[in-house]
Design a protein around this nucleic acid. Structure first.
Lengths: 222, 222
DNA sequence: CGGCATCCATTTTGATACTG
DNA sequence: CAGTATCAAAATGGATGCCG
């Protein structure tokens, strides 16, 4: 565990000393879509290896970025969640995520790549103003690359929920990974993608209208 | 030759595949304060080792984040600079820098730490609106921890310049590292720091007034 | 000075086996 | 499920040495 610090009096160097090692920021990203158990994290981060996951979690916990939480008796289990400092870090990552979408991500996932729909929802959950979300109460299923993620909007907040929490879905949104990349990178507006069928919407008219409104506001913002 | 990819269809994973290895983002930070030569980079990044610096530069150049630039005959030399994509990455790092200032950086540099005044100017150069800077034309010397960095404001843009480019200085700003940390982290407003003498200003009245105006706007913004 | 290649000690990682 | 323990492979750091 020898700490290899940069030893520089600089915010970036200090941030990277804490969270710049391999896998660490991806762990934070995983918790951006909700609290998760040890094995969930392992499943979503293919290649990390249990030993490294364990030491990363311990380090993040020591530095107050994540915390362990015991669940109620029925599911006598433990989940990891972001602390307030961790949430702030998560928000600081959003511009980096957007840069990656624009300049680093391939258009089409290679066969070896894992594609998780939750990752594509980070922009919406962490970068849509409460104003835009105000008055909306709906649950959406996003189908991307054969898998689904669930987004709940309520009280001006959007967050990713598990299939169990999702309950009834008001609308289903279907798109493929290349459309996610194009929209995320700003090369294609979500409104246009809906218009030309690359994003398909099915379900309640009200929920669909709300989502299109969010898309329109997001385009205007960037 | 780091070719160890995360293989995830996600903006953050893609960004970290390109620039997430050790030293890489600090290299980008170095170029945020102006183009630099190979040995300048080496000097500002103690511990990197020439071989690793070389391969990191090559990788960043291959991916279009930095570019080599030949200087004019008098100084027949080569400098590295950020490309447009690199500048965008730099701007995406600013929230991470601020997070580090708030949650990761120690109050007072340890004896082993390097302290470069340029690092403390990143917030001003990359995160002050053109509006705030409009109409200001001045050059400042910042003295922090026994060293100086020079900031030129002109045409609504603030940038760090070398001592040679600086020319005549309109005002000298003196503060210590702990004040930098406190102000950068938002625990102390720059205006208050001026008021109680933790930031000392000497020089032209107009230049000092302009700088205080920038401090006031920055506080209002965050 | 700029820019590598090389050799070697130390760390970090990746993969797998193993335990309460 | 939630980790520890272990070991091989890779990355890093430092010191040189070389060449234009």
């Amino acid at each position: 565990m020898a700490d290899r610090s940069y030893e520089q009096f600089c915010g970036l160097a200090a941030a990277l000393d804490l969270a710049g090692e391999r896998w660490t920021l991806l762990l934070v990203r995983e918790l951006m879509t909700g609290s998760k158990r040890y094995t969930d994290l392992q499943d979503n981060l293919p290649g990390i290896g249990t030993s490294l996951l364990s030491s990363r979690l311990k380090r993040l916990e020591q530095h107050g970025i994540i915390a362990k939480q015991k669940l109620q008796p029925p599911a006598a289990s433990v989940v990891y969640r972001l602390t307030d400092a961790g949430e702030e870090l998560a928000r600081a990552l959003v511009p980096l995520i957007r840069w990656g979408l624009r300049h680093a991500l391939v258009e089409e996932p290679t066969p070896a790549m894992s594609v998780r729909p939750e990752w594509s929802l980070l922009g919406i959950t962490y970068d849509t103003s409460a104003n835009t979300l105000a008055g909306i109460e709906a649950t959406y299923e996003f189908r991307i690359g054969g898998a689904s993620a669930y987004l709940r909007i309520r009280d001006g907040v959007a967050r990713t929920v598990s299939i169990d929490e999702a309950g009834s879905v008001d609308a289903v949104v279907t798109l493929d990974p290349s459309t996610v990349a194009a929209v995320g990178a700003g090369r294609l507006s979500a409104v246009d993608a809906v218009a030309n069928g690359r994003i398909q919407l099915e379900g309640s008219d009200a929920a669909i209208a709300s989502l299109v409104g969010i898309f329109a506001d997001d385009s205007a913002a960037s």
